[in-house]
Design a protein around this nucleic acid. Structure first.
Lengths: 333, 333
DNA sequence: TCACTGTGTGCAAACGCTTCCACAATAAGA
DNA sequence: TCTTATTGTGGAAGCGTTTGCACACAGTGA
């Protein structure tokens, strides 16, 4: 790996000149002839500045950390993709850290993560402890929460989960459904609560009575969907449609429903939050609400870079743009 | 962020002592009392060494790059997960770079990737150009190819795709199938060729004639599965079973088959390569062959770190351990 | 008493870069 | 002719580490 000095020697100038030329320093002028020689030398040697040395000097290294709980979850995959794109667009790299079960000493973990090797961190991690957030706030360390709000966090970017939920439920209502169940997510997740809130809003706005027993709380897993739908279907007056808080939940529910002889959509309509490849491949194709997850990732990176540079701007962003994706899992009543 | 000097000042010693204590340097001895003071000071200040400065000095920075073509693909997600785990286990971080369509100037891209900010790079990228590999070889830069072999690459780790394919096909043969189709992947992909080879081996080993027209080459996409299965089903003597080179292909095939009134598994048995959540959520549940993808990621990291340290070891690894996962998409004939 | 061997600590250079400052040379104004 | 500004270049410090080396101070054996 050639260094600045190597280039300088070849060009017959001092390394400081090389640095200035390569960084296009406005504050100093260099003779055109010299500039040419420098550029040629750099080209000839295949010179690339060393990011470490640069970062050490400039106290900004050109990479960001993205902390997520589970890489295999397609929801996070989309957030990652958006973040990666935006990071690259602005000349940054993404350091990916997955917590997958790494709970104890998560704080240590984060601290070690920093070590000065990133300019900031994005937490797409619903499971992060409040203590971690407090710590980040106290340390004035650039960070952004994504897909999760928190009282203690001053910065986050989330999707409009409530509007998304309303969109889904209204779609069912428009098709004549009155008895609509909700397979909710874990009550510990901010997104789950918001979706549940949206569900209720839509129900009541349509003049339908809200029934607590039509809402089954669980986790964001297929099994939770299976269990939930069985409970709903065994009610004395079962729902004709359900809104699932999540694709996995919906997939589990569809599977379990089918096994008990319930046909979808003839006997039961299903709408789910999130729209990944899976929704299309299930049969029947699942009608979903698509949230701008990639946008979440992108926006988080933008906000983080702003914060890291000390620029002003919005610190709590709710990204609008939920969209209904029609497939075959809903039939009118 | 406190520095070594801050700690030294607080402990009343020179920074070199602090460095030695903290790195547990065997070559110098330090008084027990001094060591204690240093550790206390470091603790009190919440000192963490700066990875950049350290990396600059040591020429090894403690992170690796993982280059993949598509984050949303669950196959890569597993590789990423394995790599991430192994990286963390050995105290390294993973820099994730996705190429998603970034084809032009990929070489530039890689070079800039390095910039000294990683100790090596793992290419889980089937699309990487040969020129890039040549460059890496020429530059003696630590790198490992994963899930892809190449003539020009001296180091790779792949799964035993051939054995996996044979496992799948034999499973069908054991259940009485004789006319077995193969929805192959793109002929440009090493994995696709190997799977096709395995398919043929299994067929011929069972004394069944190999028919070129039972093999449909395409891409690793659902649409390719749809198109392929239509062609197979429209043969004058259509297969009773197919082996799909990939989950997406299988999902597309199942969907298209169903739409033409073909029942699965009654009329057509399906086995696919790869086993992700999707396989379980399809209906019927898809019988698959699981390849040790996480292991691929882990092994790649191990190999890379070995290479980066200049240690000897195997440079071409075929990771055994394909496993058949039985579900409901196959019926005996 | 003298050399010798450990033991414990500090000095200073180096990793590759950026940037403030000094300074030489030329050009311009008084 | 003498300042004064402008342009172009080099010197050198410093970012936070690690580590070879020097050195001071014991303790040991002759």
């Amino acid at each position: 790996m050639p260094t600045l000095r190597d280039v300088a020697k070849l060009a017959g100038v001092h390394q400081s000149i090389v640095s200035r030329v390569l960084n296009d320093d406005k504050k100093t002028s260099v003779k055109e002839e010299t500039r040419r020689r420098v550029l040629e030398a750099a080209e000839a040697l295949g010179y690339w500045p060393n990011a470490l040395a640069r970062g050490l000097k400039l106290k900004s290294v050109g990479s960001l950390a993205l902390v997520i709980p589970d890489i295999s979850n397609p929801v996070y995959a989309e957030i990652i993709r958006g973040a990666e794109q935006e990071a690259r667009r602005s000349g940054h790299f993404l350091l990916l850290a997955s917590t997958e079960g790494t709970d104890p000493g998560e704080l240590e973990f984060l601290q070690s993560l920093l070590e000065g090797r990133v300019d900031g961190v994005i937490l797409a991690n619903a499971l992060v402890e409040d203590a971690v957030i407090d710590d980040l706030e106290a340390g004035r360390y650039p960070y952004v929460l994504v897909n999760r709000r928190s009282q203690r966090a001053s910065r986050y970017v989330v999707a409009d989960d409530a509007a998304g939920a309303m969109l889904a439920v209204n779609y069912l209502i428009d098709r004549g459904h009155r008895r609509i169940g909700h397979l909710a997510g874990p009550p510990t997740a901010d997104t789950a609560l918001t979706r549940k809130y949206g569900y209720r809003q839509a129900i009541e706005a349509a003049g339908i009575a809200f029934h607590e027993d039509l809402v089954i709380e669980g986790s964001y897993s297929t099994d939770s969907g299976r269990v939930g739908i069985r409970r709903l279907l065994s009610l004395k007056d079962p729902p004709t449609a359900v809104f699932a808080a999540n694709l996995r939940v919906a997939a589990g529910a569809m599977d379990a429903a089918r096994r008990t002889g319930t046909r979808i959509p003839e006997d039961l309509s299903v709408v789910a939050m999130h729209d990944t490849e899976l929704a299309e491949l299930l049969s029947p194709g699942l009608t979903t609400v698509r949230l701008p997850l990639e946008g979440l990732g992108r926006e988080a990176v933008r906000m983080l870079l702003r914060v890291a540079r000390g620029e002003p701007g919005p610190e709590q962003v709710v990204l609008l743009g939920a969209e209904l994706v029609e497939r075959e899992s809903v039939s009118p009543i």
